[in-house]
Amino acid sequence: MTREARLQALQDKIGYQFVDRSLLERALTHKSRGDGQKGFAHNERLEWLGDRVLGLMAAERLFERHGRAEEGELTRQFNAIVSGRNCAEAARSIGMAELMVVSRGFSADAVAENDSILGDAFEALMAALWLDGGRPAVQGLFELAWQAGQQDEAGQHRNPKSALQEWAQKRGFPPPVYQVLERDGPDHAPRFVIEVTAGNHVATAEGSSKQNAERAAAQALLKQGGLRV
């Protein structure tokens, strides 16, 4: 799939078509790509604004829906929604990892697993939407963060690769090993089958990218026999 097709797919998922596409591109550009170049356009300023946009919308939603909740309970739920990990998970769910413009020193795998890069980019995208179309433009993306935050509150949502690594470390196992068993399909719609091994446990899964297949395999191994971190 071409970058243009991926950008269109992203806009379809968030329910908004950008008028100023430069805002979308900037939201997806990490400062590392500029390699210290003065004046390089990256997403840090947008991330700053997006953090405030997300915070406002989350606070407003919680205030409206939980009329009897005390400040401490509201704060706990608020933190789950606006956390970098939650934003990163929401970013992964709409394919932002594959669209990030980063330093050539970053591998695709490194970007896909970097909560800081993806979380910041998600907030930058919030700001880009706000600037391009106002609050209505942001609503679809906010709902992703809200839903992911609710899942996280229920203990059902976290990075499965990180969870599996923690599980292995606690049991004295080497880090999980991921191996590509199959790679087929056309370039615009590839299919990967990944096997993961942790200790004496093995699981396989497939996905539309190597990163997605690895995450699915880790999740499968965690569920195997009721494994928990």
Rank of each mutant, 00 (worst) to 15 (best):
G15N: 12
Y16W: 06
Q17H: 13
V19Y: 12
V19S: 13
V19N: 14
V19W: 09
D20R: 15
D20Y: 06
R21P: 05
S22E: 07
L23M: 02
E25F: 08
R26P: 01
A27M: 04
A27E: 02
A27N: 03
L28T: 00
L28S: 00
L28N: 00
L28V: 00
T29P: 05
T29L: 04
H30V: 08
K31N: 09
S32C: 02
S32G: 04
R33Q: 11
G34Y: 04
G34S: 08
G34M: 07
D35E: 14
D35R: 15
G36K: 11
Q37P: 00
Q37A: 10
K38A: 12
G39P: 09
G39W: 09
F40V: 01
A41L: 12
A41H: 07
A41S: 10
A41V: 11
H42Q: 06
N43D: 08
E44Y: 10
E44R: 14
E44W: 07
L46I: 02
E47T: 07
E47Q: 12
W48M: 13
L49H: 09
L49S: 11
L49K: 13
G50A: 07
G50K: 06
D51M: 07
R52L: 12
L54V: 04
G55R: 07
G55H: 05
L56Q: 09
L56S: 09
M57I: 05
A58N: 02
A59W: 10
E60I: 05
E60Y: 07
R61A: 08
L62V: 13
L62F: 07
E64I: 03
E64M: 06
E64T: 08
H66G: 10
H66L: 14
G67T: 14
R68A: 13
E70Q: 12
E70C: 08
E70G: 15
E71Q: 13
E71A: 14
E71Y: 09
E71D: 13
G72N: 14
G72K: 14
E73Q: 15
L74Q: 03
L74N: 03
T75W: 08
R76G: 14
R76Q: 11
Q77H: 10
F78V: 02
F78K: 06
N79H: 14
N79D: 15
I81C: 05
I81K: 07
I81N: 03
V82D: 00
S83P: 04
S83T: 10
S83D: 13
S83E: 11
S83L: 06
G84W: 00
G84S: 03
G84E: 06
N86G: 03
N86D: 03
N86H: 02
C87I: 01
C87A: 15
C87K: 08
